[in-house]
Amino acid sequence: MNCIPCAEYIIVALMIGSAILAVEWRDLLAAAVGMAAVSLFASILFFLLQAPDVAMTEAAIGAALSGAVVIFAIKRTQRFETEEEERPGWWIRW
């Protein structure tokens, strides 16, 4: 039962899921890994869309290097998103 279309659905769902998690996670390192995951799934999708060149580039640059660069940036700044309690309304402190 190796149906290709259901593989596409699974990968797209995984990609969107990891994108949402990458945005929501408070731990920036986890967010960076989430971004790399999105990039990896996109690379697989590129492969499924008959674009091998782009898949390799996305894997090499998207997943590896941009993920690494984000992690180095986290190393030099701070790891956890300081999501302190939302101060009085963004509307008010306009």
């Binding site: 994108a19 990458a22 945005v23 920036l28 967010a31 960076a32 989430g34 971004m35 999105v38 990039s39 996109a42 999708l45 590129f46 782009v54 996305e58 998207g62 941009s66 984000v70 940036a73 986290i74 700044t77 998103e81 300081t82 999501e83």
Partner: peptide, 19 residues
């Protein structure tokens, strides 16, 4: 609110556009 989180989101947008 966190700047790095914004930059990660921007990178996700770019991947989406490439896809």
């Amino acid at each position: 609110k966190n700047l790095l989180k914004i930059l990660i989101s921007l990178s996700i947008v770019e991947t989406g556009v490439n896809l």
